[in-house]
């Protein structure tokens, strides 16, 4: 089998047991439910959704930090090794994780250069003499000066800290970077710097990225492919330009229309009723049906599968399965 994808998730599910109160029994919470997704080398796949939709759990499954309860995760055409095994440890160098809070990800008692050098020491990359040069190169690659390496995390600004975290993530020259809300804690002007830098790094180093964010504008900017998640399932996936310009799934329609635009609003806003349900009390049928303005009775019983649309994207909606236009919410 020739699989060009670097990362392939096939029907992956992750179920947690959530306890009811102090002495209550356990409710199964399907944080991620039958997700099939692949990331080709040197491409970015964006995952969007609101809190609790399972996007961060998906990132941890992709990295092999959690074992799926169903389905399989393959990396570089091989099954994910058992967690904690030697092969799994070696794989850590090839995939890296960056998340929202750079101050939490850095050790505030160590200078930045020491922390950037740490992965090199752990994975025994280069001689100790080479490592100082490599650290300086890494800092330059993320737009820091080598002398920033002598500083402690609190002496850097938020944007500089996230650059330092990225330099450390790049130290082992990974093939895959999972970025979980990497710019959400940064100011707008700094966000743009980091977004541009991620694009440059991908072009220069051929890194594949799984970019997880609640910010649709940023995901559209960086992604080659996008998946919209709701309550652990993918509702719509495909080309970001197509999905954000003309969303088909009613949830994507509402999500896109909710993006605040600086300037005149081009499309009417769809304000959804209610809130995403507790993942422990997932509704029967389509998980979105209680909030869906166009739900029909079948939506309460049938769980829609992702179906291909004429333009190549996939949508999990019974109404859209009849025709893409049938899922349109009249504004």
């Amino acid at each position: 089998m020739t699989d060009p994808d670097l990362l392939a998730l096939d029907g992956v599910a992750r179920v947690y047991a959530a306890r009811r109160g102090l002495f209550g029994g356990a409710d199964p919470v399907r944080a991620v439910d039958s997700v099939t997704l692949s990331v080709p080398p040197a491409r970015t796949v964006g995952i969007v959704g609101e809190s609790g939709c399972g996007k961060s759990t998906l990132g941890r499954l992709a990295l092999g930090l959690e074992r799926p309860d169903a389905g399989s995760v393959r990396f570089a055409d091989a099954p994910m090794p058992r967690i904690g095994s030697a092969a799994w440890r070696r794989l850590r160098a090839r995939m890296q994780l960056v998340f929202q809070d750079p101050l939490g990800a850095l050790d505030r008692r160590l200078p930045v250069a020491t922390q950037v050098a740490e992965p090199l020491e752990i994975h025994r990359i280069g001689s100790p003499a080479d490592r100082a040069d490599r650290v300086a190169d890494l800092l330059r690659a993320v737009g820091l000066r080598p002398d920033h390496g002598t500083r402690y995390p609190h002496e850097l600004s938020g944007g500089q800290r996230q650059r330092a975290v990225l330099a450390r993530a790049l130290a082992t020259d990974p093939a895959l970077l999972v970025a979980d809300e990497p710019i959400s804690a940064l100011d707008v002007s700094i966000q743009a710097q980091v977004v541009n830098m991620l694009g440059d790094l991908q072009a220069a180093r051929g890194i594949a990225m799984l970019f997880i964010s609640h910010d649709l504008k940023v995901v559209r900017q960086v992604s080659h492919h996008v998946a919209v998640m709701y309550l652990g399932r993918i509702m719509e996936q495909g080309d970001p330009d197509a999905i954000f310009a003309d969303p088909i799934h009613p949830y994507t329609q509402a999500l896109v229309s909710a993006v605040p635009v600086a300037g005149p609003r081009r499309r009417p806003r769809i304000v959804l009723e209610g809130e995403p349900p507790n993942p422990a009390r997932r509704p029967a049928g389509c998980p979105f049906h209680p909030r869906c303005p166009i739900a029909v009775s079948d939506c309460q019983v049938i769980v829609p599968e992702l179906q291909p649309m004429p333009d190549g994207r996939h949508v999990a909606c019974l109404r859209a399965a009849i025709s893409p236009g049938a899922a349109r919410i009249a504004a």
Binding site: S189, Q191, V195, R220, Q221, D241, F244, R266
Partner: peptide, 14 residues
């Protein structure tokens, strides 16, 4: 510095 929701993607003016 804000990405657009439609139209061609451009490098952000950071």
């Amino acid at each position: 510095a804000l990405p657009d929701m439609d139209g061609p993607r451009r490098r952000l003016a950071a």
